[in-house]
Design a protein around this nucleic acid. Sequence first.
DNA 1: TACTCATATTCCCATATGTGCATACGAGTA
DNA 2: TACTCGTATGCACATATGGGAATATGAGTA
Lengths: 117, 117
Amino acid sequence: MTQIFKLLSDESRLRIAYLLSKEELCVCELVGITGLPQPKISKILSKFRDLGLVTDERKDKFMFYRLNQESHMLIEILSYMESHLTTYPLLVEDRERLLHKEDHIDKCTLKSLRQAN
Amino acid sequence: MTQIFKLLSDESRLRIAYLLSKEELCVCELVGITGLPQPKISKILSKFRDLGLVTDERKDKFMFYRLNQESHMLIEILSYMESHLTTYPLLVEDRERLLHKEDHIDKCTLKSLRQAN
DNA sequence: TACTCATATTCCCATATGTGCATACGAGTA
DNA sequence: TACTCGTATGCACATATGGGAATATGAGTA
């Protein structure tokens, strides 16, 4: 339980957890949306994975991460955060960017791959 | 928001926050129930106070702390924890000791003071 | 004023943590 | 096999953090 709180106690981790609570995302999408350095995001995701809070799946060249649906507590806390989002503008911005994520992932080939589908 | 999660990410802080979610308590009661050293508890409570999460009130020689009722997010998280308590036996034990707290505060004069009332 | 007792603070130490950078890995492909 | 590109890992560094012991503070009281 303290582990979950610890993960959420860091702004970068909180942002990533929040974004993943919305939909599954790959590393380059998270980089594009948050603007955080890629190694940092990979490290954060590996911590999440070590604690069994996310699962990963490779699709083409991309590693997609999603919340482990068995992490009830994490999921409920994140969904609960939605109602307190105005106290955290950065998360609101992330949510906005997530809606237009195609505009933020031009540094990898995922964009054109998506457009091809 | 991250501040709240950070507070709850430490076992000692989590225990104290949980106990205070049940009822207002003074430092010596928290010492008695948790077995944690008094300076540690005072430090934790001062952190809580700095973040506006608790309020304090002196009664006789004792400083009583309670959750700030305006800390909605903290309060909701703590009440939500109740439903996941079995995953954290230590909190269950604390809850038990809280029910019989008179048995755990014999190192200060609060006990006899209470019995006098 | 001196004393008691509950609580608060300070200091020091070892350890943990986050960060940036460089680089390694690994799957697909030419 | 060599190359690309997305992702993962390792290292070094500064900083943050928790813990324990000693001590300070402060209110009440004799």
